[in-house]
Design a protein around this nucleic acid. Structure first.
Lengths: 196, 196
DNA sequence: TCAAATCATTGACATTTATCAAGAGTCGTT
DNA sequence: AACGACTCTTGATAAATGTCAATGATTTGA
């Protein structure tokens, strides 16, 4: 369906324009380099050991990035939703095997750009490099906060932190997923919710 | 002492050249924008609530970046040593109050560059922007690993992880500091070391 | 080199959190 | 609408980790 694809591209274009503060040169060329992707709940974009070939832009839906520990439990590093960018950054940059999984936890509409094109745009189009750097800075900053909450807060305070800082995730996601994000078991999650 | 300052600048220049893969243009101009700094063990570069005005390059010594939790305990986000860059990235970029402390845990020789100069170089000198991006990617990647180890490993496995991945820190730092980095109490650290 | 401060270790105990199991509820798919 | 799969909750118990206190060792700065 051509019109749906165009709708998706428009979301991307507006996202880029908003973040850059102006309409960049070659916006059409850049957005046309993206490929649309519709995925069912449960589909994987990446598995442990695979090389991540794309950066994904989320038009609609929610993705979970996680690892699996020695007991087979999922530990979620991050959830990504509408108008966010997802990839395994170092695996992507160096084209090396990932240690993470990326999975759709809702039906998703995505746009993806291939490594080769990404690299070309990064060096050829300053506005593209600039957007990328902004995303990188924001991602880094989020992850820094995440480390600090994980090491300095107990389970109950981590739940409170999430409710205050990412309330939309709390309502959108299952308790089990939230628990895997906070580094606690689903049972503990249930019990602590009673103490709020 | 002029010659010591020159020695410090040379370390910086070699670091930049190595990471860029070539000697960049305007290297002298860039390195002369840095100010040398000698600090005693225990000195603070930044405290909670302050605005970080500089990016620091470590010529010699070790820095601790940490937060203080509600019980007054330090939680270390990261240690930085020779030839690494340190700042509170989002606070620096947006010139907003930091939530972290940055402290010398050894006598330190540092070079620092001021926010205004950093911004100017970032937009004027492509090689400078490129180095900055590399540092950002590496820092982000490290922090991602850190989140995954904190959520997916128990205390003993986190110690093992540190020994395998950052063995120099294990020998260089006190157990107390290591414990605050791993998110465990000093007593637990002592006990688990016996189980290795 | 010495005195003061900090650190590491150990024991006893408290607290937090995980694990296992079972039943009720919910959701998605057909 | 019904089936099956998954999720949530609760209880009982176990394991992991924290806290407090005391002692000896180590380090640091004067």
């Amino acid at each position: 369906m051509k019109s749906k694809f165009n709708d998706m591209l428009q979301v991307l274009q507006e996202h880029i324009t908003k973040h850059l503060g102006k309409t960049p040169e070659r916006l059409e060329e850049v957005s046309n380099a993206f490929e649309p992707l519709q995925l069912k709940r449960g589909a994987f974009l990446l598995r442990d050991g695979e090389i991540c070939k794309h950066v994904y832009f989320i038009v609609e839906g929610c993705l979970q990035v996680f690892v699996i520990d020695k007991n087979g439990n999922e530990s979620t590093r991050e959830f990504y939703t509408e108008e966010q960018w997802v990839t395994d950054i170092m695996g992507f940059k160096n084209q090396q095997a990932s240690k993470e999984y990326i999975k759709c936890i809702e039906p998703c509409k995505l746009l993806r750009i291939h490594y080769d094109v990404f690299q070309r745009f990064s060096s050829d189009i300053p506005a593209f490099a600039q957007i990328y750097q902004q995303i990188l800075e924001l991602s880094y900053s989020n992850t820094v906060y995440r480390v600090n909450t994980l090491t300095s807060l107990d389970a109950l305070d981590r739940i409170k932190w999430l409710m205050e800082n990412k309330p939309k995730l709390m309502t959108r996601l299952s308790s089990k997923l939230i628990a895997s994000y906070l580094g606690i078991s689903p049972e503990t999650m249930t019990r602590l919710k009673g103490k709020l």
